[in-house]
């Protein structure tokens, strides 16, 4: 690892100030992607601003069907939240399958979203749930937040502080993990609102990151059942193709994971 200077912030304002004075700083949340990346010398921030001790960025609040999760909330906290499980168990299930227990004790929802790894789980949930990403400067709809591979709408120095969403009537997430890395080779988060509206978000498969599949949404809005997916065509021209899976294979996985998710919702 190259040299770096560690700073610990105790408030969002302090974190932003520290970042403002850093040459090429990075925010550090759980660090479960950033520290391994720095160890491999694939990242070399001059400064790290630790967000893990900022009380205002922690915690889960459920008010009726309205959910707010602080960005520094760990995967373990999301996975085991009884309040969250009572309105949206799908997101608890998603969190419980990220990485391993040790990673879930450190990794945070805000870190995952800000990193926007194309195989990460949370971006699919945020997009399907029509979540709002709250930052220290503004609120951004998930639709506008995830802009490409490891790319987001975040500006320099901007901090994700929380996410907000309305718990839907039904939701489920299913992923096909890579047998070695356990990252999603394809993961699908389905949502059905009380008014019958359906959203289907796919992670791990898109060559431009997480995306919604409108044809699957239309088919499931007309008929909410796994069988409704059968005749939908999933175009593989914009899907990832690598040593783990071809685009055609991933296109098939999109349908299979969607069927499983609808069955599980």
């Amino acid at each position: 690892m190259y040299e770096t200077i560690y700073h610990r912030a105790s408030s969002v304002a302090e974190a932003a100030n520290l970042m403002g004075t850093a040459a090429e700083g990075k925010y550090l949340s759980g660090g479960m992607t950033l520290i391994p990346t720095m160890k491999q010398r694939l990242a070399a921030p001059s400064d790290l601003v630790d967000l893990r001790h900022i009380a205002e960025m922690k915690g889960i609040a459920v008010d009726g069907r309205s959910v707010r999760i602080g960005a520094a909330t760990t995967h373990e906290e999301v996975a085991t939240s009884a309040a969250l499980a009572s309105v949206c168990p799908a997101i608890c299930g998603l969190a419980s399958h990220i990485g391993d227990p040790h990673v879930r004790h450190m990794g945070t929802i805000g870190g995952s979203i800000a990193n926007n790894d194309p195989a990460a789980d949370y971006p699919a949930a945020m997009l399907a749930l029509d979540a709002v990403i709250v930052t220290d400067r503004r609120e951004v709809k998930a639709e506008d937040f995830f802009t490409g591979l490891f790319e987001t709408a975040l500006e320099d120095g901007e901090i994700v502080t929380a996410v907000r969403f309305e718990a839907p009537a039904k939701a489920a997430y299913q992923k096909f993990p890579n047998p070695a890395s356990r990252y999603a080779m394809t993961g699908v988060f389905v949502v059905r609102r009380a008014d019958g509206g359906v959203r289907v978000a796919v992670t791990g498969a898109g060559s431009d990151g997480v995306f919604r599949h409108r044809d699957l949404e239309a088919a499931l809005a007309a008929n909410w059942s796994p069988g409704a997916v059968t005749n939908v065509k999933v175009d593989d021209s914009d899907l990832l193709s690598d040593i783990h899976a071809s685009a055609a294979y991933r296109a098939n996985l999109v349908k299979v994971m969607t069927k499983r998710a609808v069955a599980a919702a």
Binding site: Y6, R8, L28, G31, M32, I35, P36, K39, L48, D50, R52, E76, P101, H102, V103, H105, M106
Partner: peptide
């Protein structure tokens, strides 16, 4: 760390202060 299992190769000592 504070009662929870963590991978100490992926945490800075400074984070654990």
């Amino acid at each position: 760390m504070d009662g929870q299992s963590v991978k100490s190769c992926s945490i800075l000592a400074a984070q654990a202060a």
